[in-house]
Design a binder for these strands. Structure first.
Lengths: 187, 187
DNA sequence: ACGATTTGCCTAATACCTTTAGGCAAATGC
DNA sequence: GCATTTGCCTAAAGGTATTAGGCAAATCGT
């Protein structure tokens, strides 16, 4: 028989696609093997197991998200940068719900330290350059931003804003605006 | 043999305890049967299956959370009420991480409509009575509050603030404060 | 080009979780 | 005290995860 050409990287990418189709929690070694038309144990040459697969998808999503954020922030400052960062997360979550869920997968300390999570923190601080905040307020502000973005996006993804007026977009715009005000008048 | 005295309610409660011990995603019909010292199929007289179990734990957690919030809000208004509501969520999540995760379990529209989720929305609006907001701003504000609370709590639970200074508590206080300012000067 | 080595994917086997079907015995009701 | 209901059981089938061990395809040295 011809070989399928599996690699760890290809499995992580296919896993990410699968996550967007069926949800991150339903990404299984079995489903991935089916997708490649190979037997389940074949994947174990490339992956240590389910947890390893999930972690690799998480790392992939974090990278994509950080790349997108970095591009969105280039040449922007202040409220523009704030909205660009928020929109990056929100749009990514809506286009790639499974990958967004993967990005929230808990990583052990060592893995997290080597992940693109670090760049996310740097990008958040880059946005705050437009707001002139000293420590420890800068850290508080990073956490506020992260909480607001992640909170809104995950509630929206869960459908919390679906069947009610006004639409989520208008709340999002209003929230970005109030976040900008908060950061400008942090004192 | 004597009977174990299983009931749907008892299973949901034990499931909630199990969730806090091992994580909501690891709550399984098998583990629950072990906990009661009965065979796995015995639970199927009381539960339709795993999804049903998860849903019942979610409903239980939503009730507890709404009860706690209602009690915390009694006799409070303005910033006090805001902080009381936020603290209710945060404290519950730290004391009962599995149940908090359960409360985030997606429910179908019908189940959600009959759940304590409805009371949560009412309680959020009750807090906003202290801030004099008309629609649609009130809805935007409910969503901002929900996003901020849920975002912070879930990031904290995931350990996002663990190994860095300053501690999560000081950021939380700062965030509640800025949320209060935002709501007071919503225009 | 060809044999030796590496490597990729396979089958077999074990273990656990889920769910359905059907049975016996304990509780309940007359 | 007997009949009915009901609670928990065993049996069985299907899916996922993981390990062990084998064969064949790709790769490499000569």
């Amino acid at each position: 028989m011809p070989r399928a050409g599996l690699t760890t990287e290809a499995l992580a990418i296919a896993g990410a696609e699968l996550a967007d189709e069926v949800g991150f929690e339903h990404v299984t070694v079995s489903a991935l093997a089916r997708r490649f038309g190979v037997s389940v144990p074949s994947l174990y040459s490339h992956l240590r197991g389910t947890e390893d697969l999930h972690t690799r998808i998480a790392l992939l999503a974090l990278e994509e998200l950080a790349d997108g954020a970095a591009e969105a922030l280039a040449g922007r400052a202040g409220p523009d940068a704030l909205a660009a960062l928020g929109d990056t997360y929100r749009d990514y979550a809506r286009e790639h719900p499974g990958r967004y869920a993967a990005a929230r997968h808990p990583l052990d300390a060592e893995t997290a330290a080597g992940s693109a999570g670090v760049r996310h923190a740097q990008l958040a601080r880059a946005v705050l350059r437009g707001y002139d905040l000293a420590e420890p307020d800068q850290t508080h502000a990073v956490r506020l931003m992260g909480s607001t973005f992640h909170g809104f996006v995950s509630l929206e993804l869960a459908g919390a804003f679906s069947h009610s007026e006004p639409d989520a977009q208008s709340s999002w715009a209003r929230i970005l605006d109030s976040l900008d005000h908060t950061l400008r008048s942090w004192a």
